[in-house]
């Protein structure tokens, strides 16, 4: 087990190094640059832009810039944002909570509902419920989140006035109830798509298991259906879901760009897009490394969890 972990860790480090080199190159090779947004400012000159670029070290050769960045990273210094001048880790940390809250609640909701819908659809195959769930999932997957979010705002905020039109909390309030009421719409909008995905996977996984011999045997030896379902079917059907959930971890933390935009939610998705828009290299690199690490951790965690849940699997 320990050997396995060490090998995985070593692989991960090599992978991270590659990701950082490729990411850095792609970012810097894209034309434009952090200063192009200032070009149309009244009175701005090429000479002034060049001076500022020099002061920021942007006129150095790319490999030098990369090594400089990497060397600082090794010492725990992720650099400072070009946009607001704060340390990168502080910038990322400042957006983590919002994303965790939204993605956490919506993922929990969609896994719970998705599992239920999937299992029920599989056990009552070709029933009205199954058809409705299938069609519902198709529709939910096809609706653009942006549009669905705006319609929800139009209906529940503008027409009915039940829910706030966005934002994480009322400025100056910020009580638990205030957070909760702001959370409802974005959570549901975001969960809608995920429920659809999740329920389809769960349905397929359950169907795979339900036709296996051991299920028939369990039924034949007279076990109650409920017991067969929970003890044998669902437990086995959840195994591939664990892997899937592990792969979802990075998504949870990298945010939901569209939902965050519609509901003005200050999360990681917005941060990533804004930082890209400003060519804020240090933050984009920070986010890139951050999500690469999460992907690696998520995969490792999923493998470990499957081993724990399924005694037949031995790592090593």
């Amino acid at each position: 087990m320990l050997r396995y972990l060490l090998a995985r860790l070593w692989q991960s480090l090599v992978l991270l190094l590659l990701v950082s080199i490729i990411g850095f190159a792609v970012l810097n090779l894209a034309p434009g640059g952090p200063l192009s947004q200032y070009a149309l400012t009244p009175g701005m000159t090429q000479a002034e832009l060049e001076r500022i670029a020099h002061q920021m070290g942007l006129d150095r050769p790319l490999p030098v810039q990369y090594l400089d960045w990497f060397w600082n990273l090794l010492q725990g210094d992720w650099g400072r944002s070009y946009r607001d001048n704060r340390p990168v880790l502080e910038v990322i940390g400042g957006h983590l909570f919002a994303t965790l809250l939204l993605m956490g609640s919506s993922t929990a909701l969609s896994i719970a509902i998705g599992t239920w819908v999937g299992v029920k659809g599989a056990t009552k195959r070709y029933s009205m419920f199954d058809y409705a769930a299938t069609v519902g999932a198709m529709v939910a997957l096809s609706i653009p989140t942006f549009w669905f979010g705006l319609v929800a705002i139009y209906l529940f905020s503008l027409k009915l006035g039940w829910l706030p039109a966005g934002n994480m909390y009322t400025i100056g309030d910020g009580s638990l109830g205030d957070y909760a009421i702001h959370l409802i719409m974005p959570t549901v909008v975001l969960a809608l798509v995920n429920v659809a995905v999740w329920s389809r996977y769960m349905r397929t996984a359950t169907l795979d298991v339900i036709n296996q011999d051991f299920v028939r045997t369990a039924k034949a030896k007279g076990l109650a259906w409920r017991r067969v379902l929970f003890k044998h079917v669902i437990r086995n059907a959840l195994l591939p879901m664990i892997t899937l959930a592990g792969l979802q971890i990075p998504t949870i933390l990298s945010g939901a760009l569209v939902t965050e935009t519609v509901f003005t939610w200050p999360g990681m998705g917005r941060l990533f897009l804004d930082s890209l828009g400003y060519n804020d290299y240090p933050v984009v690199m920070g986010l890139l490394m951050f999500s690469a690490i999460l992907v690696l951790i998520g995969n490792l965690l999923a493998d470990l969890l499957v081993a724990v849940a399924d005694p037949r699997i031995r790592l090593g």
Binding site: L150, I153, Y154, S157, L158, P164, A165, G166, N167, T261, V262, T264, P266, R270, L273, D274
Partner: peptide, 16 residues
């Protein structure tokens, strides 16, 4: 900060 112009206008309409 409201990153999208449609959303900005919507929040103006709702009074946010």
């Amino acid at each position: 900060y409201i990153p999208d112009l449609t959303v900005l206008y919507t929040q103006f309409k709702t009074g946010d």
